[in-house]
């Protein structure tokens, strides 16, 4: 298993698309930083224009915390989309290049092989989110400095710097769980569909559908709280004034359960399916 994992990591590192995708994530980060630098003050003005009649503002709201929050919001769509593309490639390239048959000719158990793909997907996704978080904090604080964070979640909410930093860190951690879910779904879709293009389209569709369904009321408390689409915004709960810890714990536990179930389905299908 260890050798399989090492090989899978090696393959991932050697894939050029991994670097294209990573570069894409950092380009998004750069664009957010650039636009915040040049347009951030204008955005803040729009947000607070109504309040300007009633209040004086003392202090700077365009700061590292707000810019990091903007980057964090790429977890809604951009980051999972890129991760989906990279992670599905872990398996679809093996089908395409027929290397899968070669591997299967070795004394390798099918379930161990596919499990190693999942583990690599999970570790890599976590690393990507970690690097995204780290670079966001470093660059945002270096360019924009510290200050209070303002967000619009059920009203305008202000967080002091230390509180904001902690909430952003928590949000990245829980956001990573959501990203892992999408990566695992992507690998499972690759198991089912084999072809790269088909897998990308279906995985992207899955992501879009998940985002749309997040805003749909299913008319049932159970579905509204327990369906996977309702769990992918859990990282945003850290920006409500009182953090709903119990909801977050439940949602994260459910999301991990969904992730494990999806992995289980993938392992089962791969085990049963003809690799040809």
């Amino acid at each position: 298993m260890r050798a399989l994992l090492a090989t899978e990591f090696y393959k991932l590192i050697k894939q050029s698309r991994t670097y294209y995708a990573l570069a894409a994530i950092f380009v998004i980060e750069g664009v957010v930083l650039f636009s915040a630098y040049y347009q951030g003050a204008g955005i803040i003005d729009i947000v607070l224009s109504n309040l300007k009649d009633t209040f004086y503002f003392e202090g700077n709201l365009l700061n590292g915390n707000l810019v990091t929050y903007f980057i964090l919001n790429s977890l809604w769509f951009h980051v999972p989309l890129i991760l989906i593309i990279i992670m599905s490639g872990l398996l679809t390239t093996e089908y395409k290049d027929k290397t899968l048959q070669m591997v299967m000719m070795q004394p390798v158990k099918k379930w161990q092989y596919i499990l190693s793909k999942y583990i690599v997907a999970i570790v890599f996704t976590t690393c990507v989110v970690f690097v995204l978080a780290l670079t966001s904090f470093l660059l945002s604080y270096a360019l924009f400095g510290k200050g209070d964070l303002i967000v619009y979640v059920n009203g305008l909410t202000f967080f002091e710097h230390d509180d904001a930093l902690l909430r952003l860190v928590y949000a990245f951690i829980v956001g990573a769980v959501s990203m892992v879910f999408f990566s695992v779904v992507s690998v499972t879709l690759a198991v089912i569909f084999k072809e790269a293009m088909k897998t990308w389209i279906i995985a992207a569709f899955f992501l879009i559908l998940s985002n749309i369904l997040l805003k749909v009321d299913f008319g049932s408390e159970l579905l509204n709280k327990g369906l996977y689409v309702k769990l992918n915004d859990t990282w945003q709960y850290f920006f409500t004034f009182e953090i709903p810890w119990n909801t977050i714990y439940t949602n994260v536990a459910l999301l991990i359960a969904y992730t494990l179930f999806t992995m289980g389905v993938g392992v089962y299908v791969f085990q049963k399916k003809d690799i040809g």
Partner: peptide, 20 residues
Amino acid sequence: QFEMERIRIPLNFMGKDIDV
């Protein structure tokens, strides 16, 4: 105590708007 207009923010702009 004072009167003020309800704030208008482009929704979807600064975070989670599902509960608005």
